[in-house]
Amino acid sequence: MTPDELLRSLLDSRGKAGICSPEKIPDPTRIRTLDALRKEELSVRELADRISVTRQTAYRACEPLEEAGLIRSGPARLALTCSGEVVRRTYHDLCNETDSNGLVQLARSPHKQWVLRALKRTPARKATLATTATRENGPSRTTIHRILNLFTSGGYVREQAGACELTRAGHRLLDAYTKFSGVITQALEKRDVLRWLPSTLDTLPIEAFDGARVIRNAPDQPHNVLSALTQCVDTDIEIFRWMSTIASPALVAAYWPLFQNSGTDARVVFTEPVLAAFTGGSATVQALQEFGSYVEKEATRQRGTIRCVTGPLSVHLAICDETRVILAPAPTTEMTDATAAGLESTDSAVVRWATAFFDTKYAEGNPPDAPSVKQAKGRSTHN
């Protein structure tokens, strides 16, 4: 499935309204599917009832959504993923800025997209557009004239001194479509990671993942993600943030020098199970034992470099010098180590999101004082 195919699939609508029709068509079926799954997980039968379609139509609606990682199916129910929620919200936000019918029609017609993009580059006479289209394998002269008439009557194009140019509405429509296409592209390209993240991570700027590196485990290389997390640090890092969803001796061995380095501002957020594993005294790896001792000692001194949260964390994070982020889904889904994937990004928008997310969880946590360490151990043993 290509991004264009997914976009057309998402915006496909059987409504008869055209790009310039004042009649408002219902939201496309697959958008309504994402809307229905926003509030709760549903079976296919429940979904069909919720969006008022047959069960067969519901199955057809879900197939490309699941293939693209926008929804995930469990044993009996469907769940909205992080990318599914971002795509859903982006669609509705853009529909508040421009004509939803126009988005649908652009998705159906590459020729309409070509005309808008050509006019955005520069206003042009109809004959000039036709000549450019011939050179760029664009639409025919007849198709260009038909589309221009349609766009002009709809208020997206106007003719000034013999040249056609985009109106403000035309710019808004094309910008909205381009933005939505960018979100769709990243959702599809990064689906190996995003499909495992929950829909509650709806602020994740997936459109900024263009250029991010996808790190994939494989059956014959099951530790690629862990290796990337361990290799991302060095002793010259001045600011380090670590959100740990696994008790890994390999990570401790890699990160331990940063906590010993007085020149590094190192902070970490643990969950209770991870804290219990780090301080349980049963680890056989020396690095883990040392870190467990550090946790207990610093918990007593309460220097504030460590916070423990009682609830689960959805993502594992390593943020280096506020310029580089590696993230991976927490091992709380059906994802296996052999198929796990992570992302590495230096995009400023991704770094800002990761830092804000970490800071929020850090503020929600508490220093692991001696009673909380004992309590975490007890809960872990009980579970």
Score class of each variant (00 low, 15 high):
residue 149 N to H: 14
residue 149 N to Q: 15
residue 149 N to S: 14
residue 149 N to T: 14
residue 150 L to T: 13
residue 150 L to W: 08
residue 150 L to A: 14
residue 150 L to R: 09
residue 151 F to G: 08
residue 151 F to P: 08
residue 151 F to S: 08
residue 151 F to L: 13
residue 152 T to G: 12
residue 152 T to F: 11
residue 152 T to P: 03
residue 152 T to I: 10
residue 153 S to P: 06
residue 153 S to E: 15
residue 153 S to C: 14
residue 153 S to K: 15
residue 153 S to R: 15
residue 154 G to W: 00
residue 154 G to N: 06
residue 154 G to A: 08
residue 154 G to M: 11
residue 155 G to N: 12
residue 155 G to F: 10
residue 155 G to T: 10
residue 156 Y to C: 01
residue 156 Y to V: 07
residue 156 Y to W: 12
residue 156 Y to D: 10
residue 156 Y to G: 00
residue 157 V to E: 11
residue 157 V to Q: 04
residue 157 V to Y: 05
residue 158 R to G: 03
residue 158 R to V: 04
residue 158 R to C: 05
residue 158 R to H: 14
residue 159 E to K: 15
residue 159 E to R: 15
residue 160 Q to D: 11
residue 160 Q to G: 06
residue 160 Q to K: 09
residue 160 Q to W: 11
residue 160 Q to N: 13
residue 160 Q to T: 12
residue 160 Q to L: 10
residue 161 A to T: 08
residue 161 A to D: 14
residue 161 A to F: 12
residue 161 A to C: 13
residue 161 A to E: 14
residue 161 A to I: 06
residue 161 A to G: 06
residue 162 G to T: 09
residue 162 G to M: 02
residue 162 G to S: 07
residue 162 G to N: 06
residue 162 G to Y: 06
residue 163 A to V: 09
residue 163 A to C: 12
residue 163 A to I: 02
residue 163 A to Q: 11
residue 163 A to T: 04
residue 164 C to L: 10
residue 164 C to R: 10
residue 164 C to W: 10
residue 164 C to T: 11
residue 164 C to E: 04
residue 165 E to W: 09
residue 165 E to K: 07
residue 165 E to L: 04
residue 165 E to V: 08
residue 166 L to Y: 01
residue 166 L to C: 07
residue 166 L to D: 00
residue 166 L to K: 01
residue 166 L to F: 03
residue 167 T to P: 08
residue 167 T to E: 04
residue 167 T to K: 06
residue 167 T to R: 03
residue 168 R to Y: 12
residue 168 R to H: 13
residue 168 R to S: 12
residue 168 R to N: 15
residue 169 A to T: 07
residue 169 A to Q: 06
residue 170 G to H: 10
residue 170 G to Q: 09
residue 170 G to I: 10
residue 170 G to A: 02
residue 171 H to G: 07
residue 171 H to A: 03
residue 172 R to A: 15
residue 172 R to Y: 15
residue 172 R to F: 09
residue 172 R to N: 14
residue 172 R to G: 05
residue 172 R to M: 14
residue 172 R to V: 03
residue 173 L to W: 05
residue 173 L to F: 01
residue 173 L to Y: 09
residue 174 L to S: 02
residue 174 L to K: 07
residue 174 L to Y: 08
residue 174 L to C: 04
residue 174 L to E: 02
residue 174 L to Q: 12
residue 175 D to N: 07
residue 175 D to R: 00
residue 176 A to F: 10
residue 176 A to L: 00
residue 176 A to Y: 07
residue 176 A to D: 05
residue 176 A to P: 03
residue 176 A to R: 01
residue 176 A to H: 09
residue 177 Y to F: 15
residue 177 Y to C: 02
residue 177 Y to W: 11
residue 177 Y to T: 02
residue 178 T to N: 04
residue 178 T to H: 06
residue 179 K to I: 07
residue 179 K to T: 09
residue 179 K to N: 06
residue 179 K to M: 13
residue 179 K to A: 03
residue 179 K to P: 01
residue 180 F to Y: 11
residue 180 F to N: 05
residue 180 F to H: 04
residue 180 F to P: 02
residue 180 F to V: 04
residue 180 F to D: 00
residue 181 S to H: 09
residue 181 S to Y: 07
residue 182 G to D: 12
residue 183 V to M: 05
residue 183 V to H: 03
residue 183 V to P: 00
residue 183 V to L: 01
residue 183 V to S: 00
residue 184 I to H: 01
residue 184 I to Y: 10
residue 184 I to F: 02
residue 184 I to L: 07
residue 184 I to N: 02
residue 184 I to W: 12
